[in-house]
Design a protein around this nucleic acid. Sequence first.
DNA 1: GTGAAAGCGCTAACAT
DNA 2: ATGTTAGCGCTTTCAC
Lengths: 336, 336
Amino acid sequence: MSVTIKDVAKQANVSVATVSRILNNLPGYSEETKQKVVKVIDELGYQPNAIARGLISKKTNTMGVLLPKVSDLFASEILAGIEDVAHEFDHSVIICKTDKDGTRTMKYLQTLREKQVDGIIIVSEYITKEYYDMLTRMNIPVVLVATQSNYDIPCIKVDDFKASYEAVTYLLDKGHIHIGMISGTRSDKMTTTPRVHGYRQALIDSGLPFTENAVAYGDFGFQSGIECMQQLLSHQKHLTAVFCASDEMAIGALSYLYKQGIKVPEQISLLGYDNTATAQKAIPPLTTIEQPLYKMGRRAFEVLIKGERKVNLIYPHRIIERDTVTNREPIALLNK
Amino acid sequence: MSVTIKDVAKQANVSVATVSRILNNLPGYSEETKQKVVKVIDELGYQPNAIARGLISKKTNTMGVLLPKVSDLFASEILAGIEDVAHEFDHSVIICKTDKDGTRTMKYLQTLREKQVDGIIIVSEYITKEYYDMLTRMNIPVVLVATQSNYDIPCIKVDDFKASYEAVTYLLDKGHIHIGMISGTRSDKMTTTPRVHGYRQALIDSGLPFTENAVAYGDFGFQSGIECMQQLLSHQKHLTAVFCASDEMAIGALSYLYKQGIKVPEQISLLGYDNTATAQKAIPPLTTIEQPLYKMGRRAFEVLIKGERKVNLIYPHRIIERDTVTNREPIALLNK
DNA sequence: GTGAAAGCGCTAACAT
DNA sequence: ATGTTAGCGCTTTCAC
């Protein structure tokens, strides 16, 4: 049997109320009794039971985090941010890996509710009506990171349209005119759509045509990067640059190109998205659009703990220039 | 105010005991009342309070996981395994990122105790006397993954000495005789020492000399891989192969070599350790020693939930052949 | 300055 | 088959 507040009280010859006061730094005891009690606590190795506390206070000091994968630099970078602030605020974080499985998500939401978490952070996941209904019924603060929703839920993200527009413009400025795109999941209206639109708009604003065939739809993962690159190459012979909607896909594309003996960036320039740790470790190091993932994770936790209910935070992206994008010589234009 | 078991009882005209029985699938009620109660539960959207339950049952259905980093393929692969079984067993997992900060670790242990977790999994962390004392005082089941301890704590790992011995033997079999090693943290007796010993023994058993200068000590990370490779090259001009104690360091070495214009594997063969996701994505794909990280994570959780207190599980490693190791032509031997 | 006692939401005897 | 009641370990009035 574990030692409880009662044991401490008995041993110190005071009431549990007094011990509780001392534990919580409330007024109402002499310095003398405090010394006595603290001594007993130490001797007995007493530690308060957070469960009992939580039952009364209706606060558990724990937040739940829903994410698609944990073994993925994208989500885990956000998670790192969340965890750090949580620690600063003396909170714990429960992780729920949804594996893009809707059933699992609902189950997790329920568990989180039962465990009375103080808030929920949802990372890069689409909010269905089912989720939203559940969320409102639960009446627990929620915040979205790296995604957003048509429903009224606070979110923290980058301006995908703008980032994508600038990414393509960057390629355009380098002289590229045949630019392909490896995009995310086709059905993902929250993330994929704005990025494809940004790509298209940048092309159009430069007087260049938008071709359906120049965009391949993957799933943000490495393998799909390989497949999309292959697909793109089979349709689009003139491609000199490809904008990828995730670093993982860019790395996949890089691998495919390497295997085909196509030089990056000499023959094809590659531009990633996210700036996860993998980007700088690639060979050659990947030029990419940075999303401040760690900071976004931190901020998400803060939204929850500060009780902000109506925020829609746009975080700044920026281009990290490394070695996978090069100038397209003017000569190429003429050759065409 | 949230709806409680009392509300359900009142609404359904039964006692809380009956509701509780139905909730927990205990015998003692008619099918009729069950229907009635279930209906009310549904109408009211009632969900049991796990905190209250935990207070009585002394079980929280949550496990704590201590790991050095979350944004690291090594730990997160183990975490993925843990999380999956946890979900299967209807448990939650609280993550505690220690950041190689001893203070933080002690704090986390305390929090986990207060939150009454049912068990603790410690991933690749050295157990100090301070931790061990805390752990015994807490009286919570613990299991170690990818590390071990002189203290009596269950653990799950690979045989580092043997894996390392075989890794080097593999290189030897390929004809290499000047083999360097990029090792982990020098002070890490649990992981680094056996690997270095395995390396040395393999050399000695082949009648080759062991040179202190042929092993560089990093910290398992990418950057240290770069530095160690550079260091090795400055001392050891004849090196034709390097065994790295982690994939991350191998990737770092690969990057450095690439930047120096040294071809892998034509000029230098590289062998990694872990087989994290990064290995197959490298250019060229990295040959490495696999540790079944995901499975080890799964098993760790099972040890806890099955209450196994005295296990010392050695998981099988194996060589994953990819493209960074090549034969050293016999001619090289002659040249020497 | 300190203690007694009522509950937080639930489970588990013990009654009936 | 169902209800009553005593806690689980703690916080928090309300007395004194």
